Computed example of a mutant assay.
Amino acid sequence: MESSKVVHVHFKKPYEGMTDLYFGSLKAIYLQVPEDIIGIKYKSLTNAIRGKDCYENKRCIIRIGALQRMSNIKNKDKQ
């Protein structure tokens, strides 16, 4: 199994009708959601979450986890 980072943003009040969004990085959040909706600047968030897997403020909860997926390994005997 392979894993890659996934960032889950849960809004305490819906943003454009959504309460949960998923991203591949912290920076990607700010490409889609305005900073004032997140409630923290990107650089401050990177400092606040360093060494942790969760950050929470009055507007949202941000969790970092691993997305598990199957390896893409081909069997050499079946070529």
Rank of each mutant, 00 (worst) to 15 (best):
M1Q: 05
M1T: 13
E2M: 04
E2V: 06
S3I: 01
K5G: 03
V6T: 11
V6P: 07
V7L: 02
V7I: 15
V7H: 03
H8R: 15
H8K: 15
H8M: 09
V9R: 13
V9C: 04
V9D: 00
F11D: 01
F11C: 02
K12W: 12
K12V: 04
Y15M: 13
E16P: 01
G17S: 10
G17V: 06
G17Y: 05
G17C: 04
M18Y: 07
M18L: 09
M18S: 12
T19Q: 13
T19F: 02
T19A: 07
D20H: 11
D20Q: 14
L21V: 09
F23T: 08
F23G: 11
F23A: 10
F23L: 05
G24A: 03
G24R: 07
S25H: 12
S25I: 04
S25M: 09
L26N: 05
A28I: 02
A28D: 13
A28K: 11
I29M: 00
I29R: 00
I29S: 01
Q32K: 06
Q32N: 15
V33I: 14
P34F: 11
E35Q: 12
D36Q: 06
D36H: 09
D36R: 09
I37C: 03
I37M: 00
I37S: 00
I38R: 00
I38D: 02
G39V: 03
I40C: 04
I40F: 01
K41L: 01
Y42A: 00
Y42Q: 03
K43F: 06
K43A: 08
S44R: 07
S44V: 01
L45V: 03
L45M: 03
T46P: 02
N47I: 10
N47E: 13
N47Q: 12
N47V: 04
A48L: 06
A48Y: 03
A48F: 02
I49W: 11
I49N: 02
R50T: 12
G51H: 07
K52Y: 05
K52R: 12
D53L: 03
C54H: 14
C54K: 07
E56Y: 09
N57L: 03
K58S: 08
R59S: 11
R59E: 07
R59I: 00
I61Q: 11
I61N: 10
I62Y: 11
G65T: 10
G65H: 06
G65K: 05
A66W: 05
A66L: 08
L67Q: 11
L67V: 03
M70N: 14
M70V: 08
S71R: 13
S71I: 04
S71V: 12
N72F: 15
N72C: 04
K74I: 04
K74A: 10
K74N: 10
K74D: 01
N75D: 15
K76I: 13
D77N: 12
Q79R: 15
Q79D: 14
